[in-house]
Design a protein around this nucleic acid. Structure first.
Length: 858
RNA sequence: GCCCGGGUGGCGAAAUGGCAGACGCAAGGGACUUAAAAUCCCUUAUCCGCAAGGGUGUGUGGGUUCGAGUCCCACCCCGGGCACCA
């Protein structure tokens, strides 16, 4: 027994010839073969790709992780699936780009710094080291020469460049936005504010504060992002639906109402201009800019102000909860309906949102449920303008709004028309008369990308007293994040106290100016990383157009469903901008998307099933399992656990089953190796095989067909592995030794060699070792994927089912050579079948060749 | 409320409209062993039956079909997303 540590790694090339059976012992020595092959893959740069070479490419990308510390087996599923795809495609002869990196900016690093005094950089890089070790111990194959970390200046230089591209194109702008503000922790997300209005982390009081912040105009691309979803045929329907909902297109019209008393315009957005003759009041959001004007010299000012203040103080959650009671206050003013000149009262209400549409709603209580509820509360008039053709509506007796289609009434020139049919003409009418137009509105808002945080890429902007907001020129990038900041004593964003960082010269006029101290949202770093992997060390550009045009879109993107909307939508947006800036020629970053389910485990505390997480205390560490069973077992079990797109429950006991299976393969090769090696050169010959060998040979080729199918279509690793298990069961049913027939030996050799290749994407270490044991030079990644021999699939006889009126009555073995007519005659002539139909009249016989015969008899 | 998924043995699950429960886990029985571990063999949806065999079974109720876990209609439950979106 020679230990791995005594081997000279440079001799791996000739290893198979010189020391073929080095580890070949009865016990499955996973703890020796796994490090050996991991080292082999690393030393020989097996996963290295030269992206300058353009030939039969496949870009397989697994979402890169946030380096939070150590990973559990739930994280592993993502990488194991990606690696199975990568290795499968490599064996199929593709040049596969499979890179990995780190989404390394973000809040946890900064919190660690504040709490424990570790610098975010140190914390992040030490986590990266840990997690990289874990990925390697799983045997995941990456081209590590392409490793990137978004917190590295060589990377974020180009994140800043992406920002400049958007700025150049007018897509980055500043505006005021209210934020939750904690003086110590700076801006907080809604979920970081506790119910009592204090900060989740430090317990201090949180206040609303108006801050000028940077936004990206994703709304400008809303239509394209929505329309192009239809191009993403290889994305899960679910994700496309979610993105569609998120973007939320509403097609309708802008109609310009005016305030009768002041003449002020008051435009509204509506999807139902067909109900415009039914407007009986107008509803404004409390934040509507007209409100201030309406207060002047208004005898109702006090009541109005009280209502508006009350609503502004209320939480966003209360405001947008549709069970909240609808309330409002009359302004004393009226609006004029441009279609008929009618006047209607102007109210301020709590159910209209300033963020959507124009912040003003034309209220039609007869045909909108919310307006109806409000009208009932305040006893406002209700006017039916769409008649229900089935049962006439009466405004006085309505109990809810009628929102269905119908015939227009009380609508002057449009009376008698179907409301849907008249819609276009009604908007056209407004457009012709200059008081409205066709408009489309989107639910999606612009993307807030500035963060009042240290651990992010500085926004490359300088504020000059003379020139205003000036972008840092590309040649001066990166704007480096200083290391020497104090996390202990400073409040808020440490960068905003760092005078050396802040003080600079204006790039335009050269006079003293101040740097922007906000940093870019972590999201932006991960919006373009898939491009950088193609040219990760290029220091003159973010990427080469020629290379990304060849390698992208990503052929297969693999990640968690939790990124269905934000990461994937933002990435699509950024890519579209980079396309429009002529830096690449494709419009979508990810051709196919696969979202794997989460791994859950029952909590020992309450017995409930939860997603694995440290806080729930239900994590399973891969490190221990790898020590006990090996990485191949963990990989095989993870893939076998169930359909990869569905959530799965981790079962410690079931891991053992995968281990036993690998050990069975190992033992079989151990026991038959000499015979197999001596059988080289023997070829299976269908004409000469005895039945058991013939059956195994068929099983082998059925398995090749099934497994190939399972890997080519959806990622059905679980059924592919089940098929390998079936094949192995069939192998073990047949003895093999030196005295076996030549055909037995030939079939066994082909079967074992194929089986090892078939399992190699899932359990690569043991596959490499056994492949070598059977006399092949490494690596198995260079082996050909087995091909289906159609002749091997043929059968002379087959068992079919005999049904009487759809109920199974017997099973019969019949020759496969019979035509459907012959099958019918053959079956009806059988004694067993005669018994079944005795005394009955056969009405019909359904023959499904190879499956069944159904006799309909009464 | 609306929009997506999903509901099959003790458990994870499998099944182009054609033999429901492949494959694995767990459990029970047996072989080997002084013993244990490991390994191997058998049983394992459910009901009736000594057995041969038969009945019932894929959330519920209907329907289409020679034939439905699979297709259609209605409903119940679970998971996810969105939600006063004008």
């Amino acid at each position: 027994m020679v230990l791995y540590s005594t081997l000279n790694p440079t001799r791996f090339g000739v290893y198979s010839c010189a020391f073929g059976s080095l580890f070949m012992e009865e016990k499955y020595p996973f703890n020796q073969i796994e490090p050996k092959w991991q080292k082999f893959w690393t030393d020989h740069k097996v996963f290295k790709v030269d992206t300058a070479v353009h030939e039969k490419k496949y870009y397989c990308l697994t979402m890169f992780p946030y380096p939070s510390g150590t990973m559990h087996v739930g994280h592993g599923r993502n990488y194991i699936i990606g690696d199975a795809v990568t290795r499968y495609k490599m064996v199929r002869g593709f040049r596969v780009l499979s890179p990995m990196g780190w989404d390394a900016f973000g809040l946890p690093a900064e919190n660690a710094a504040k709490q424990r005094g570790v610098h975010p950089k140190e914390w992040t890089y030490s986590n990266i080291k840990q997690m990289k070790r874990q990925l390697e111990s799983w045997g995941i194959g990456y081209d590590w020469d392409r490793e990137i970390a978004t917190c590295h200046p060589d990377y974020y230089k180009w994140t800043q460049w992406v920002f400049l591209k958007l700025h150049e194109r007018g897509l980055a702008y500043r505006k005021n936005a209210p934020v939750n503000w904690c003086e110590y922790c700076t801006t907080l997300a809604n979920e970081e504010v506790l119910a009592d209005g204090t900060c989740e982390r430090c317990g201090r009081k949180v206040v609303k504060k108006d801050l000028t912040q940077w936004f990206f105009k994703i709304t400008e691309y809303a239509g394209q992002l929505l329309d192009d979803l239809s191009l993403l045929e290889k994305w899960p329907e679910k994700v496309r639906t979610m993105q569609g909902n998120w973007i939320g297109r509403s097609v309708g019209a802008r109609i310009d109402f005016t305030i009768a008393e002041t003449g002020d315009p008051c435009p509204v957005f509506t999807t139902r201009p067909d109900t415009i003759y039914g407007v009986t009041f107008m509803a404004l959001a409390p934040e509507h800019p007209l409100v201030a004007k309406l207060l002047k010299n208004n005898p109702r000012a006090a009541a109005i102000q009280a209502f508006v203040e009350k609503e502004k103080m209320g939480s966003a959650a209360d405001r947008t909860d549709n069970t909240t009671k609808k309330e409002g206050v009359f302004t004393g003013f009226h609006i004029r309906n441009p279609y008929n000149g009618d006047l209607a009262p102007l109210w301020i209400t709590n159910y209209v949102l300033m963020e959507y549409g124009t912040g003003a709603v034309m209220a039609v209580p007869a045909h909108d449920q919310r307006d109806f509820e409000f009208a009932k509360t305040y006893d406002l008039p209700i006017k039916v303008v769409i008649q229900n053709p089935a049962a006439a509506l009466n405004a006085a007796t309505l109990t809810e709004a009628y929102v269905e289609d119908g015939v227009m009434v009380n609508s002057a020139p449009f009376d008698g028309r179907g409301n849907r049919e008249a819609l276009h003409d009604m908007i056209q009418h407004a457009q012709d008369h200059g008081f409205g137009e066709f408009t489309t509105h989107y639910r999606i808002r612009d993307w807030l990308i500035s963060r009042q945080r240290y651990w992010g890429a500085p926004i490359p902007i300088v504020h000059c007293p003379d020139c205003g907001v000036v972008p840092v020129p590309e040649k001066e990038l990166p704007v480096l994040l200083p290391d020497d900041v104090d996390f202990k004593t400073e409040r808020g964003n440490p960068l905003s106290y760092h005078e050396e960082f802040i003080q600079t010269a204006c790039p335009k006029c050269g006079k003293p100016a101040r740097r922007e101290t906000d940093t870019l949202a972590q999201w932006l770093c991960s919006c373009w990383y898939y491009l950088r992997y193609v040219n990760p060390r290029l220091n003159t550009q973010a990427y080469k157009k020629e290379d990304v045009d060849y390698w992208l879109p990503v052929d297969q993107y693999i990640g968690g469903i939790e990124h269905a909307v934000l990461h994937l939508l933002y990435s699509r947006f950024i890519l579209k901008v980079l396309h429009d800036a002529d830096t690449c020629s494709f419009r979508e970053p990810f051709n196919a998307l696969f979202t794997q389910g989460m791994i859950c485990k029952r909590s020992e505390k309450d017995g409930q099933l939860y997603k694995m997480s440290k806080s729930k205390g239900n994590v399973v560490s891969p490190d221990e399992l790898i020590r006990e069973y090996g990485a191949d077992t963990v990989r095989l079990y993870t893939l076998f656990i169930g359909p990869p797109e569905k959530d799965a429950e981790w079962n410690d006991a079931a891991v053992e089953g995968s281990f036993r299976f690998l050990r069975r393969i190992w033992r079989r090769v151990y026991e038959t190796r000499d015979t197999l090696l001596a059988s080289k050169g023997l070829k299976p010959d269908l004409a000469k095989m005895e039945t058991p060998d013939r059956d195994l040979y068929r099983k082998l080729h059925e398995s090749i067909a099934k497994i190939t199918h399972d890997l080519e279509g959806a990622f059905q690793f679980n059924t592919a592995i089940a098929q390998i298990m079936e094949l192995m069961n069939a192998v073990e049913a047949l003895k093999l030794d030196a005295t076996s027939s030549d055909q037995r030996k030939a079939v066994m050799l082909e079967t074992m060699e194929s089986l090892i290749v078939l399992i190699s994407p899932f359990a690569p270490h043991v596959a490499e070792e056994l492949w070598q044991e059977l006399g092949h030079p490494p690596s198995i990644l260079a082996a050909p994927w087995p091909e289906v021999n159609r002749n091997a699939l043929a059968r002379d006889e087959i068992e079919i089912v005999i049904q009487l009126c759809g109920k199974i009555r017997s099973r019969e073995t019949i020759p496969t050579s019979l035509s459907p007519k012959e099958i019918e005659a053959h079956v009806l002539a059988l004694d067993s079948v005669k018994n079944i139909i005795e005394g009955l009249t056969v009405r019909k016989v359904v023959v499904v060749p190879g499956k069944l015969v159904n006799i309909v008899a009464t």
